[in-house]
């Protein structure tokens, strides 16, 4: 590990600590040790809203549900859209129109349709994760070299074989990239969704609640947890990409 990489973060921490001591106002900037105290005691109840660990698990569960739902719809639809021009023509315009709308712009509609609560949050996460998954899947399927399909045909492959044994395996790396990006966006969306009225648990909720009580140490601790989990999510999926899809560099 390159030690130079840690110079800037350590300097940053030192600067933060100095600034906090100088300001001497934890409502604006709490000292580092206060935040660490929250982080190393994740099992202790905070502000009467459950522990940091519980709230983190609530958020993770929500993200997983929305993300899995988005994958379960986005991947198959993307494969069909990429492979069958008819399906593409059916859905293309709708997708292109909905795609640029930020997930949070759906909040009012989500609240109107599903009321305040889990379903609305799930919907927002779904919207956030769905489009990157769908678009990367379509790109993956469309990017399958024609010559691989022709090769399979001259070996006797029929439509079903081509889809199952050539198109889908060849687009897996791209699908996984879509899932990785989708997971990242889903994670951002859950925090935002939990800040909505009606939320009563989760990291997003905890941040807003701690803010209302001027507990900036809890706010910052939650932010750090959010950052770390996002990083683990991204790195984990990247690891799978590198480990199992080395061959993808061969497809041009």
């Amino acid at each position: 590990m390159n030690l130079r990489k840690f110079i800037a973060p350590l300097l940053g921490l030192a600067l933060w600590e100095l600034l906090a001591l100088w300001l001497n106002n934890p409502v604006v900037l709490p000292p580092v040790e206060e935040v660490i105290k929250v982080l190393i005691n994740p099992q202790i109840s905070i502000l009467g809203t459950g522990t940091l660990l519980d709230n983190t698990l609530v958020s993770i569960k929500r993200v997983l549900s929305g993300f899995i739902l988005a994958g379960a719809v986005g991947v198959p639809l993307g494969i069909l859209m990429g492979y069958y021009p008819l399906v593409m023509d059916l859905f293309d315009i709708i997708i292109e129109l909905l795609r640029p709308i930020p997930p949070l712009a759906w909040v009012p509609l989500a609240l109107a349709w599903f009321g305040m609560g889990e379903t609305s949050m799930l919907f927002i996460i779904f919207i956030g994760a769905f489009f990157p998954i769908l678009l990367n899947t379509i790109a993956g399927v469309k990017g399958v070299p024609k010559i691989l399909i022709e090769t399979a045909q001259t070996l006797g492959a029929k439509e079903k074989d081509i889809l199952l044994k050539v198109v889908i395996p060849a687009s897996l790396p791209s699908i996984l990239t879509g899932l990785r990006i989708g997971a990242g966006i889903a994670w951002m969306c859950v925090v935002a969704a939990e800040m909505l009225p009606g939320s009563s648990a989760g990291l997003g909720y905890l941040i807003m609640y701690a803010y209302s009580l001027s507990r900036m140490d809890v706010v910052i601790a939650c932010m750090i947890v959010i950052g770390i989990i996002g990083l683990i999510l991204d790195r984990g999926l990247r690891y799978i990409e590198d480990r199992y899809f080395k061959w993808r560099y061969l497809i041009k």
Binding site: I147, T154, L155, K165, V166, P169, A170, L172, L250
Partner: peptide, 29 residues
């Protein structure tokens, strides 16, 4: 069709399959 096999000029092995599974591909289908 399988009765007319074509060997292309370009490299056309399925990159996610090892040699054995590539050679067995037509039979698998």
């Amino acid at each position: 069709g399988a009765e007319r096999g074509l060997v292309f000029q370009q490299y056309t092995l399925l990159p996610w399959r090892n040699v054995l599974d590539n050679v067995a591909f037509g039979l698998e289908i």
